[in-house]
Structures are given as structure tokens and as C-alpha cells.
Deep mutational scan, measured.
Amino acid sequence: MSIQHFRVALIPFFAAFCLPVFAHPETLVKVKDAEDQLGARVGYIELDLNSGKILESFRPEERFPMMSTFKVLLCGAVLSRVDAGQEQLGRRIHYSQNDLVEYSPVTEKHLTDGMTVRELCSAAITMSDNTAANLLLTTIGGPKELTAFLHNMGDHVTRLDRWEPELNEAIPNDERDTTMPAAMATTLRKLLTGELLTLASRQQLIDWMEADKVAGPLLRSALPAGWFIADKSGAGERGSRGIIAALGPDGKPSRIVVIYTTGSQATMDERNRQIAEIGASLIKHW
């Protein structure tokens, strides 16, 4: 067993022997301040990774656009098919120029040779490549099948209805392509620590998230040296922004954090800054 596999296998073990965790309302004060600064709703939840206990939450059962955070769930569904012998990570998928959609920095470079399922998941999570996500959605049967996968996990809230990039439209009061912070946090925890996926697939999923290259201005910008984070960000229309993450000190994750916002007129930089400040408060009061 590799060191990384050992780390993920012992996530519940280490967490069980940690000192009790206590909620700190100071972080919620910052979440509410972010709402004021952005002029928009902000949803927040913080779960203990081992027990699933909610440590703090704000608007945990209000719907927010998922945006690209759905790509972690998508690759979880792909990995479940791999575990069941219905898919192979090494299978190569070929596609054409007509398949390319807006923001496809990886797939646009491989029109000639195609990409493997493993490479597509890596591109979808680490670079948020939209064509990679659409190609992977095709392998599982489309958005409705991802929703069905989530329902089978016990998540009857999260739903995907459309493809990239239309799913980022974020129309107010439109339930399409949305989740709730509580539902997303619980589902992410199941994917990373539950028995739904094999140990190898859980490790692969967290490795992809740990290698995320496009979430630097968010929670990662607030992390002290030595902290662990595996995350996936999302951005959408109407001032929408979000991030889902597993993080913790001492090089291992111990909490799940989900943050979503929508309806702001603020710039992307300002949305990023507010999420980073929430992260800084979380870490300060850990």
C-alpha cells in the first residue's frame, strides 16, 4: 500500500482519535458579512469528516447552483462504474471539434489522439474542462443518470439537468442544476469515506481534487503551510461562485467545507476574496 493510499485508508482512524471539535460562531459572522459585502445569498456548511456531524452552517438547506462543483460527483459516478466493471479508466475516447464547448483548455489539445477516461476526469476536476465533463456525462448516460446515481446514494436534493455550459445559467428560483450545502457536503463525505467506492477509487477521487489547479484564489489562499486540501470550485452566471473541499491540518483532511453564493453584482475577484476570507476565519478558529 502506498503512503497516499495509507493516508486515505486511515482518515477515519486518525479522526477518531482527534480531540473533540467545537464550532466557532466567528466564522458564521464572516459568512454573514460576506453576504453584506456581496449583496447576495451565501450558503455555508462545515462537517466533521469522521462523524458527519454538522459543526457550523448557514442557509444549509437553500438551493444554490452547483456550477462546476458537480464534476466531482460526476467522476465519482464514473469511478463507481469502474468498480462495477462497467468502465475502464484506460479506455480512450475520441471526439471532434464539434464536441468542444466553451472553456476546454485540455480537451482542445487532444482532438487528434483523444483522451482516456482517467485523463478526462483529471481534466474535468483539476482544470474544470467543460468538454471533458460533457464527454464523461455521455459515458454514464447524461445528466439524468448522474441525478439517479445521487438518488441511489441517498441524495434526493442534488440534481443535474443540463450539460456544460448551460448548467451554469443560475436563474433565480430555478431548481435545475442545483444542490443544497448540506446535501453536497453529505454526498461528498460519502464519496470520500464511505463504502460506495473502493479504496482505490476513493484515493483516485481525492487525488484529482488535491491536484486542483484553478481554485488557488479561494480556500487555498488562506491555508497555512502543512495543511491538506482537496477541492473543486465552480463559477456561473449572475454572480455565482462555489467551492467544495476536504481539508485539515497535519497533512490530512478532517472536515468537509461547502460554500456557495449566487445573485451578486460583485466582480469575480471580490467573490473570490470573500470566500478566501471565510476560509481564513475557519482556519483561525479551527
Rank of each mutant, 00 (worst) to 15 (best):
P25F: 09
E26I: 14
E26N: 09
T27P: 12
L28D: 08
L28F: 05
K30Q: 09
K30C: 13
D33I: 03
L38W: 08
L38P: 07
A40R: 08
V42E: 01
G43F: 01
Y44M: 12
I45R: 06
N50A: 06
S51W: 06
K53S: 11
L55Q: 15
S57K: 07
F58K: 15
R59N: 12
E62R: 02
M67H: 11
S68D: 00
G76V: 10
S80F: 15
V82L: 08
D83E: 12
D83Y: 04
D83N: 06
A84S: 05
A84Q: 15
E87S: 10
Q88A: 10
G90W: 03
R92P: 11
S96K: 07
S96N: 04
S96I: 14
D99K: 02
D99A: 04
D99G: 02
L100I: 12
L100P: 09
Y103M: 08
Y103F: 04
Y103P: 04
K109N: 12
K109C: 12
K109F: 11
H110W: 13
H110Q: 14
L111V: 05
C121I: 13
I125E: 01
T126V: 06
M127Q: 11
N130G: 15
T131Y: 03
N134F: 08
L135P: 00
L135D: 01
L136E: 01
L136T: 09
L137N: 14
L137G: 08
T138L: 12
T138Y: 11
T139N: 10
I140M: 10
P143M: 07
P143A: 09
K144H: 12
L146R: 01
T147H: 08
T147I: 09
A148H: 07
G154F: 10
D155M: 01
H156N: 10
H156W: 14
V157P: 11
T158S: 06
D161C: 10
R162Q: 12
W163G: 06
E164R: 00
P165R: 08
P165Y: 09
P165W: 05
L167K: 01
N168I: 13
A170K: 02
P172F: 07
P172V: 08
E175I: 10
E175K: 13
E175A: 10
R176E: 11
T179E: 00
T179G: 01
M180A: 02
P181G: 03
P181K: 00
P181Y: 00
M184G: 02
M184A: 03
T186R: 10
T186D: 15
T187W: 15
T193C: 07
G194F: 09
L197D: 15
L199Y: 04
L199V: 12
Q204R: 04
L205E: 14
L205Q: 15
I206P: 02
W208M: 12
E210V: 14
E210H: 15
A211L: 11
A215F: 15
L219E: 07
R220V: 11
R220E: 06
S221V: 09
L223C: 02
P224G: 10
W227A: 02
A230E: 01
K232Q: 00
S233H: 02
G234C: 09
A235R: 14
A235D: 15
A235H: 12
G239N: 02
S240P: 10
R241E: 08
I243V: 13
I244C: 13
A245D: 00
A246K: 06
A246P: 01
G251N: 07
P253R: 10
I256N: 01
V257L: 13
V257D: 01
V258E: 01
I259G: 01
G263E: 09
S264H: 10
Q265E: 06
R271G: 11
R271I: 02
N272T: 13
R273E: 15
R273H: 03
A276W: 06
I278W: 06
A280K: 13
S281V: 05
S281Y: 04
L282Y: 03
L282Q: 10
H285P: 04
H285K: 10
